[in-house]
Amino acid sequence: MTHAEALPAWAALLTAFLVLVGASLTLIGAIGTLRFRTFFERVHAPTLGTSWGTGAIVLASSLLFSVLGSRLVFPELLIGVFVSITTPVTLMLLARATLYRERSEIASAAAPDLLEDPGDRPT
């Protein structure tokens, strides 16, 4: 890690802090997926990692390369923007798929009752 020696102390400490914050938020989110009991509770857990977990690590990387190159570089922020736009889309699609599956399971569980009395069956 020769590039770390070239960093000023404040930048190194800030980068270290941001990386640790991001990684611990992601870890807590992953523990959440283990502890929660139902799917709709588990949906909330990965958002810890995808919101400020990703945000902090991306900021750390951006800060490090900006100070090293002594110019502002923001391509890492592109990842942050991309993740924060795409994660809601995937989670929404998954939540809707789950709702759809649970509803159709309830519907198919009710189907035998309808079959016993064909006279009432809705067409």
């Binding site: 020769t2 590039h3 980068t15 990386v19 990703t54 990387s61 490090l64 993740v83 995937t90 998954l94």
Partner: peptide, 28 residues
């Protein structure tokens, strides 16, 4: 659906791990 949710989280975590390797080596 739980598996797909965790696969998505796995992708994000792997991406973050790759970013921390970038911080470690200083290579963009």
């Amino acid at each position: 659906q739980d598996r797909v949710l965790c696969l998505d989280a796995l992708y994000v975590n792997a991406m973050l791990l790759v970013l921390t390797f970038g911080i470690r080596t200083g290579s963009s």
